[in-house]
Design a protein around this nucleic acid. Sequence first.
DNA 1: AGTTTCGGCGCC
DNA 2: AAAGGGCGCCGAAACT
Length: 564
Amino acid sequence: MTDRWALAPAEDGGVEIAPLGPDGLLTGPARWAADPAEAVRGRPEVTRWVWRSTAEVYPRLLATGVRVERCYDIEDAETLLLGHEGRYGEPRSAAAALARLRGGPVPPDPPQRAAEPGSQSLLFEPQSVHVPLADLVEVYADQQRRHDATAHPERMRLLTAAESAGMLVAAEMNRAGLPWSAEVHRRVLHELLGERYAGGGEPRRLAELADEVSDAFGRRVRPDLPADVIKAFAQAGIKVRSTRRWEIESLDHPAVKPLVEYKKLYRIWVAHGWSWLQDWVRDGRFRPEFLAGGTVTGRWVTNGGGGLQIPKVIRRAVVADPGWRLVVADADQMEPRVLAAISRDPGLMEVAGRETDLYQSVSDRAFSGDRAQAKLAVLGAVYGQTSGDGLKNLAALRRRFPKAVAYVDEAARAGEEGRLVRTWLGRTCPPAAGASEDAAEEAGIPQDDPGETVAGGQEWVPGYASTNARARGRFARNFVVQGSAADWTLLLLAALRRTCADLAAELVFFQHDEVIVHCPQEEAEMVVAAIREAAELAARLTFGETPVRFPFTTAVVECYADAK
DNA sequence: AGTTTCGGCGCC
DNA sequence: AAAGGGCGCCGAAACT
């Protein structure tokens, strides 16, 4: 029995709460309390709090030590429901949803803020339009009805609930932060880059490499300026279109080696160097702002500090507190397993029903034991590879796993034709065509350009998909797999969060298919078991009865870098 | 001078 | 070997 209550900050700085019935409507009068924490603490029987925005309310609760079991984030649900209804891009604020219900002018969404280093109030949204509790409940009740109108109401309800849970996890992670040793980080930087010089210029090792590059070209060249490097190669008689590593790596020129090394270290210096440490690490924790469902596929993003792009060498700095451990868990071959679950391809389900290396199994069946080729083929199918060895491999894959390949092919076709494409739980890919083109464009969906030419430089050829239509096809092909994987990971996180709530363990990091739990050493084995159980529960909840297994590789370590 | 885009590369 | 999905970040370059 769920006991749902609505919660809305009041304009006087207090908060209003009220009980809700199964239809989402009020079943009692609203009560006022001076602050949200007091209101929530006073209602321990409430199992789900319904509010406008988790990011608005929850950080303040956490700041006073109040944790909630479940929530329902109205604005997140609005985004998902609008997407499902093919109305991607319409304003998704509660105020806008209310205006649509009442037929008034729909206010545009407030602009997103950028993250600022060291800011302690990244999640507070003071610019948002205030919506009184009674109005909020009206929107909520309408959303309950809209769930019923979706293709799979029970899946859609699971999706909005799961993503709300994800928002709780994100807020809690944002508060916890990732344990980070500034001392180790500095040591790594010094080992890689050498001493820093006064004045903030390049550290010693970069300066040396820049000199080596210049010596090799016989003139002063700045390796961090692509235009300069391209010119220098041209003067040496080598034409390069760019200075991307894969393009210059194979060139026969003495500048290549120091140049490649320079670019690698330069990247560390500018993106994860001393100034990054200064900006993003304090009190022994790195605090990127995790944003659940920050992408159209449902993958999370972080805002600030490049939280999901921590280079391998820098992971040395992620160190557990004394007496504590990091449980680092990585889902094994998540995407092909998800493809097996959603396509129900018998062969792939059988392969994914084992916990052993899936790529090896696929290669045994379709690639004469060549694991690398099998992996390329599977990833090519998921990413939409259109040329090279991938095509040949894709054909082999299609022979053995026809339903799986057909599933992503169909998604690609739907994407090319501008039809709606959905994940397993109903998260919807913005269509390219139709009334919401601007929104799709904004979301990064490739759009047709009236002036474009097809490959080969010809003008439009009837019957051929345009370059952008094909790009949309690849996007949609990947969307169904990546997005359904995101659906599953939300359920995984929600389940894991519940177990951790009974322990001292804290979720501190999540990156697509990888999760880190920080816990006392003696809890580590319990956490490992909890991850396995959470994966099973998530699979059952997300995909229903399926033979597909979702094994994790887990490591109990003191340092993140030791996990692999 | 301030803002946006680009090139390159880190992660999955 | 070659190029296919999703992101964020940085400095430089290209703009207003």
